[in-house]
Design a protein around this nucleic acid. Structure first.
Length: 720
DNA sequence: GCAAGGTC
């Protein structure tokens, strides 16, 4: 029997379908499916892994963070225990019956390593297979590609797998050593540990750097002059200078305005916006972020839609549809999708279909496109949103350009130039179906040069220049990609980790003071791990390994040497390092001033129960305390409640962040409690009425659609 | 209780 091992369940299934000469028999080992069929007259079994099946780990004797010197992890042995027990069992049980094995994992570095991991399981179960290994290399899940790959089997590339293993080892060695060192230096043990890593730390440094720029930013005042003209409907215009740097200049311009304005110029410019490129992972995550769905959630939702057969594989760099994709077939089933059916039909009737092409073309997977028809009822709200996004993007890539007309008007009033602009879409094209972030038309009155209008008002606005904006999660994904940080599959997780570790909060991403401190301390004392250059360097080394120019061991050993130097420098700066981080943590925990003694109010924990509360730093002289919610991160806002004067905090976690003052006896809270009770009473009443109505309609023997459509809202529970 | 990389 020949055993074919792929990277994931879906691929294993497709491989079987494309190679089978007759029927495919489905089997299962526990919950791991496999597919049996005949190929070249030989019984063949295809099985899928779940990505990596081994996970590198240090031996047991290194597990105590307090007792083990972190530097001993630099040279410690690295074990590769099985992380996917079920899959490993299935592979080993099948291996025993096999006389040949074909590795058919993804055609990339990690895929090669995953294949080698699988082989270690295979040989353990059946050593006779050692000399009977072949590798199928295909870069698209199509019949032609797969058949071609299996007709031209090659060897597993030890070099490519070694490159992947070097990456793995270096990540664990640096990550574990520095995470433990930093946690120990700052005495953050247990769940309070502070993590450090090749990808997360440069990402955090990026966010912190932007925050520092914002803080260093000195706002400069400027003035704008706006006037209102009338020709039928009044409309606003701006002084052509835009930003006045000096106040007297704007005053002078204001004084010069008369009560009329003459049209000096009417300029019209037609412009064309081509439809967008097909979705790769980054573009998809960015678009999802723009409609308020975080990358990690969007990735999760797309994954669900993929496993249910609604969309294609969601992790791809490709932005060019393969020739083999049958657009008409896809449009055929999109005809039945709510909200887009008519549009799909229109495209089908419209003749030749020419999809757009993006800049990046790879062959591993197609761009993300809909693979099945979903209905709103069958999906959760957020899944439906993501499905619609992918469907609409797909339709947009098959649509015509949108055309618009931009009108610029210039006026003269008392020698001052006033101007305004308006844009009107003249031909919707792809915008009709892909309406995300679309701005409404700004229509201007149609005017002729020389025409005179009434100037009915003018106003000076004093403004300030703004600091550079914070990164949104979508933007961050793009910046990471540009810097080579992480992969399409890991970037959402990396960002999510920064949230979970309490390094950042909110979106746009705001670093906590702890996050600022860790970023600064790492940049100051271990700059290697805080810079994206480490990844760039690692990429170069991995290329060298995979091309056989250098050995895996020499790359990892050299990296160990660098880490030893970094470690020594850290050791000699331990107190400075810890002070920087502690300062940040202390700031995060200082909520405001004590109303009785004027000392700082800080987050503390009860020694016995470990429950947190707010205490006065003047303790034991001042015994003021406040309760705190026990769950979710607490972010001090630096503001005080307008009703009771106590500090306000933001509580993260739960469905959405909420802002509250820490005083439970605040009159506002009392008011809110009463309002809530009233709301709940009203809700109960409504439910009772709906139920009564339902009973009534049921009694009348009619459909109860109206009553059942009424959803019963759960009363919101307070966490305090 | 460490990282980052796959995939569910």
């Amino acid at each position: 029997m020949r055993l074919i091992i792929s990277e994931k369940a879906n691929t294993a299934k497709k491989v079987a379908q494309f190679l089978a000469e007759g029927t495919v028999k489905e089997g299962k080992h526990r919950s791991v499916p496999h597919h049996t069929f005949d190929w070249n007259g030989e019984e063949t079994v295809s099985v899928g892994l779940k990505g990596h099946v081994l996970n590198p780990e240090y031996p047991e004797e290194y597990s105590n963070w307090q007792k083990v010197e972190p530097s001993s992890l630099i040279d410690a042995e690295i074990l590769k225990p099985v992380s996917e027990k079920g899959v490993a069992q299935a592979v080993q049980s099948l291996s025993k019956k096999a006389d040949k094995v074909v590795i058919a994992t993804d055609f990339d570095r990690e895929g090669e390593l995953i294949g080698v991991e699988a082989l270690s399981l295979v040989f353990e179960a059946n050593p006779k297979l050692m000399d009977h290994v072949e590798r199928a290399r295909f870069s698209a899940l199509t019949k032609a590609e797969i058949q071609g790959a299996f007709e031209n089997l090659v060897e597993v590339s030890k070099e490519l797998a070694d490159a992947g293993e070097a990456r793995q080892d270096i990540d664990l060695i640096w990550g574990a050593t520095l995470t433990r060192w930093v946690s120990r230096a700052t005495k953050r043990y247990g769940s309070a540990f502070l993590s450090v890593g090749r990808v997360q730390s440069p990402t955090l440094a990026l966010i912190a750097e932007r925050e520092r720029e914002r803080r260093a930013f000195i706002a400069e005042p400027y003035w704008e002059l706006e006037a209102t003209l009338r020709n039928g409907e009044p409309f606003p215009v701006r002084h052509a200078t835009g930003r006045f740097k000096e106040e007297p200049a704007v005053r002078q311009a204001f004084e010069n305005l008369t009560d009329t304005a003459k049209v000096m110029e009417v300029k019209e410019k037609a412009s064309t916006r081509p439809p967008p490129a097909p979705f790769n992972t980054t573009a998809f995550l960015t678009a999802a972020a723009n409609i308020g769905i975080s990358p990690s959630r969007a990735a999760r939702l797309a994954e669900d839609l993929y496993t249910d057969g609604y969309v294609s594989y969601p992790r791809t760099d490709n932005t060019v549809y393969p020739q083999s994709l049958d657009m008409r077939e896809i449009l055929g089933y999109l005809k039945g999708v709510e909200g887009v059916g008519q549009y799909a039909e229109k495209l089908l009737k419209g003749g030749e279909l020419k999809p757009t092409r993006g800049k990046k073309q790879t062959t591993d997977h197609p761009p993300i496109y809909p693979t099945g028809r979903a209905s709103k009822k069958a999906l959760r709200d957020d899944q439906w949103k993501i499905y619609q996004l992918i469907v609409r993007r797909f339709l947009a890539t098959l649509s015509g350009p949108s055309k618009s007309l931009r009108t610029t008007l210039r006026f003269d009033s008392g020698g001052e130039i006033l101007t305004t602009r308006g844009t009107v879409v003249t031909e919707e094209g792809w915008l009709e179906i892909y309406r995300y972030g679309r701005r409404p038309d700004e229509e201007l009155p149609s005017l002729k040069e020389g025409e005179e209008l009434k100037l009915i008002g003018a106003e000076i606005f004093a403004k300030e220049t703004q600091p550079p904006g914070r990164y949104g999660q979508g933007r961050l994904i793009n910046v990471m990609e540009d810097l080579g940080l992480g992969t399409k599959a890991t970037r959402p997780n990396i960002i999510q980790n920064l949230y979970d570790r309490g390094y950042v909060h909110d979106d746009p991403v705001v670093p906590t003071e702890k996050g600022m401190g860790v970023a600064k301390a790492l940049t100051d004392f271990a700059s290697e791990i805080a810079s994206h250059e480490m990844t760039a360097e690692l990429e170069r080394s991995m290329d060298a390994i995979s091309e056989g120019r250098i050995s895996k061991d020499s790359v990892v050993d050299e990296s160990r040497d660098v880490l030893r130097r970094v470690y020594e420098h850290l050791q000699s700066s331990e107190t400075e390092f810890a002070d920087i981080v502690w300062e940040g943590i202390r700031t995060d925990e200082t909520l405001g001033k004590c109303p009785e003694s004027g000392h700082d109010l800080i987050i503390r924990r009860n020694r016995k129960s470990r429950k947190r509360f707010v205490g006065c730093s003047g303790y034991p002289d001042c015994r003021v305390t406040y309760p705190l919610p026990q769950r979710g991160e607490i972010i001090p806002l630096g503001t005080t409640c307008d009703a009771c004067g106590s500090p306000e905090i933001k509580v993260l976690g739960g469905k959405r962040p909420w802002i509250t003052c820490i005083n439970m006896d605040c009159p506002k809270k009392q008011e809110q409690r009463e309002q809530k009770e009233q709301r709940e009473a009203a809700e109960k009443e409504k439910v009772a009425q709906a139920e009564a109505a339902q009973v009534e309609t049921a009694q009348q023997g009619e459909g109860s659609e109206a009553a059942s459509r009424e959803s019963v809202q759960e009363p919101v529970k307070s966490t305090t």
